[in-house]
Design a protein around this nucleic acid. Structure first.
Length: 537
DNA sequence: AAAAAAT
């Protein structure tokens, strides 16, 4: 038996809210797995597409939202990505579209997404589940030409999937009327808020008839979003599945200390990559800034790693190429900005590396949520420098637990020379500090693939917290906050900045590849460099 | 100290 993306742990649907409009997914009424897609009221054609895709049992958000969406009710879905949220609106929409036909320039449904990749992903869902239908789906996103999009609009689109900017652009050019929209979907509303899209969304909503059905999804419900739901939704059914500030139980988390110099961080990362070795099926490496994505990407390629890059300043074609190569397994490592943190459906990522500690703690949760999906296990490593400690404190407070250090916490960095923070065994750390020869490093490299000394404990964070656990978690948060404050009060040890090894410095990046700007995908290189060749240098 | 999105 397979489920649509992400069977989380069964507690997911126990969230209780006092809101009287709320429909809580009541698993008190039935065993979670007894509901099948056939019970939800979807049309035969949709059902057969779902069956063909290999799914029989809906996820909690699907079971909760689909029947109401089919009835034409407004739905407020509070769910993180990876809960099967997309199918929760795609399946009932296709069913409802069976009645009636699209007219030129008057799409019947509109879905707003915060990023281009997410929009493209939703389109794929319509293709997959609408294979027994003759649906016209138009994807209106920036970075690509208008022509084809206009053609589709002119022909009459049943489904419009758009990012706000390009949609308004089409509208202003008079290529589009929104007066025929029957169903309006706002996806990832909280992220749209972060990105400053709310005014655009309000403007778009005003162009759509009042009588429409609105499906509204958000991972979290900050006050601004609540206000927006009051404005957009009429007597909505509320379906809530997962808590935002939680990390999957299947993700192993660890911290790794490093000096803050970028070459030092890159060296730390490479050591981690070597240590994990064959365990890495594929990995996303997150950087906070786009320039750092490019820089790290070039460095990894130069060191012979099978790496790609993904960030918002890249050419759209390169973005798509990179993403599909990564999905297809042609790329092992994807260096990315937070474009890739949320929403993107990249199955089976075995590892997540945070090259930088995220500045906003929620991003940490989203990033490591890229691994350990659908019940699989995943590993995450976060490289921490001295100046990151306050962000780290915020993260630990948010997730209400301390994350294990792989090889001594940040305060131990000061005690030894700067290149010696071997990511694993303490014994080796001492050895590294006293050696400076290259031959030595070569053997070190081999040792890196040996079994790891300190395996970080498996996370026990909950995906959803019932009332009693909420309190317990809060007190844990308070304790962590106090502990962090106390640690901060202690005087910090100075470290020796001058004892850097020359070898590390030589890592600085050489000439950039040509053709794809800074971000030529490694898999497109004519001569794929061999891993480890440059490593010992 | 950031990223994303219309040109």
């Amino acid at each position: 038996m397979r489920r649509l993306p992400k069977p989380r742990n069964s507690k997911d649907s126990h969230n209780v809210s006092s809101d009287d409009k709320t429909e809580v997914l009541a698993e008190t009424t039935a065993e979670p797995n007894t509901v099948t897609f056939a019970d939800l009221g979807l049309s035969e054609k949709v059902l057969s597409a779902v069956t063909d895709a290999g799914y029989t049992h809906p996820t909690p958000i699907q079971a909760g939202a689909i029947p109401h969406a089919l009835e034409g009710k407004d739905v407020l879905g509070i769910a993180q990505t990876g809960t099967g949220k997309t199918a929760a609106f795609v399946l009932p929409m296709i069913t409802r579209l069976e009645k009636g036909r699209a007219r030129a320039r008057m799409p019947r449904t509109l879905i707003l997404e915060p990023t281009r990749e997410l929009a493209a992903q939703v389109e794929e869902n319509f293709v997959k589940y609408g294979k027994n239908h003759r649906l016209t789906v138009a994807l209106l996103i920036g970075g690509v030409s208008f022509e084809e999009q206009e053609k589709k609009l002119q022909r009459g689109a049943d489904v419009l999937i758009a990012t706000p900017g390009r949609l308004l652009d089409h509208f202003e050019r008079g290529k589009l009327l929104l007066t025929g929209v029957e169903t309006f979907v706002i996806d990832e509303a909280d992220r749209m808020l972060d990105m400053g899209f709310i005014p655009d969304i309000e403007r778009i909503a005003k162009l759509i008839p009042f009588t429409r059905q609105t499906l509204f999804f958000s991972a979290t419900m900050p006050p601004e979003i609540t206000k927006l739901t009051e404005q957009f939704l009429h007597a909505p059914v509320r379906v809530e599945v997962a808590k935002a500030a939680s990390t999957a139980t299947t993700v192993t988390q660890a911290l790794v200390k490093s000096n803050s110099k970028s070459w030092d961080k890159r060296a730390t990362l490479r050591r981690l990559l070597e240590a994990e070795g064959a365990e890495i099926q594929n990995a996303i490496i997150f950087c906070n800034r786009k320039v750092d994505v490019s820089e790290l990407f070039r460095s990894l390629v130069k060191h012979g790693y099978d790496a790609g890059a993904l960030h918002g300043d890249m050419d759209q074609r390169a973005r798509m190429a990179m993403l599909s190569a990564f999905r297809d397994g042609k790329l092992k490592l994807l260096v990315a900005s937070d474009v890739a943190a949320r929403g993107l459906d990249i199955p089976e990522v075995s590892h997540v590396f945070n090259f930088d500690v995220p500045i906003h703690s929620e991003d940490y949760v989203h990033r490591i949520g890229r691994t350990g999906r659908a019940g699989r296990t995943g590993k995450s490593f976060t490289i921490v420098t001295r100046s990151d400690t306050k962000y780290l404190d915020a993260i630990e407070t948010l997730i209400a637990r301390k994350i294990d250090w792989l090889d001594g916490d940040i305060s131990t960095l000061a005690a030894v020379d700067t290149e010696s923070e071997a990511p694993r065994s303490r014994g080796r750390e001492r050895g590294r500090a006293s050696s400076s020869g290259r031959g030595r490093r070569g053997s070190e490299q081999k040792a890196a693939t040996a079994p790891k000394a300190a395996e970080p404990a498996v996370v026990e964070a909950e995906t959803t917290a019932p009332a009693a656990e909420v309190e317990e978690k809060q007190s844990r948060r308070d304790a962590i906050r106090a502990e962090n404050a106390e640690r901060k009060a202690r005087p910090e040890r100075r470290h020796d900045e001058h004892k850097r090894s020359r070898d590390w410095r030589r890592d600085d990046d050489g000439p950039s590849p040509i053709g794809f700007g800074d971000d030529i995908p490694a898999f497109m290189l004519i001569e794929p460099p061999v891993k480890n060749v440059t490593q010992g240098e």
